[in-house]
């Protein structure tokens, strides 16, 4: 059941003939199981700390999703707010082409 849904999602997102890439996509991203902030016991996530936030912003400038970064829900929410604030102050780009 769950398998079926997952495959359906993959097909919808990928281009034609992208089905074969399914197995590979798994291994493409490194998976971190532990939330960085829980592990290192960091309480506050600051929008001024650009260096730290940069590790959650891939090439394109988007916010890295939880499933890739392994951050827990609480801390992902804080990261999200911090990134958005930093963007307002032009410390981080909204988009990079």
């Amino acid at each position: 059941m769950a398998n079926d849904m997952e495959r359906g999602g993959g097909r919808g997102r990928g281009q034609k003939g992208g089905d074969k890439g399914q197995g590979q996509r798994r291994t493409m991203f490194r998976r971190r199981r532990v939330c960085k902030f829980c592990a290192e016991k960091i309480d506050s996530i600051n929008y001024k700390d650009v260096k730290m936030l940069a590790s959650f912003i891939p090439e394109r400038g988007k916010i890295q999703p939880r499933r890739l970064s392994g951050t827990c829900a609480t801390h992902q929410r804080k990261v999200q707010v911090a990134i958005k604030r930093a963007r307002q102050l032009a410390l981080i780009p909204y988009v990079t082409d």
Partner: peptide
């Protein structure tokens, strides 16, 4: 230096 231009400005004093 700012991450993107705001109006005509490329850098700013923070």
């Amino acid at each position: 230096k700012m991450a993107y231009e705001i109006g005509p400005h490329k850098e700013g004093v923070y």
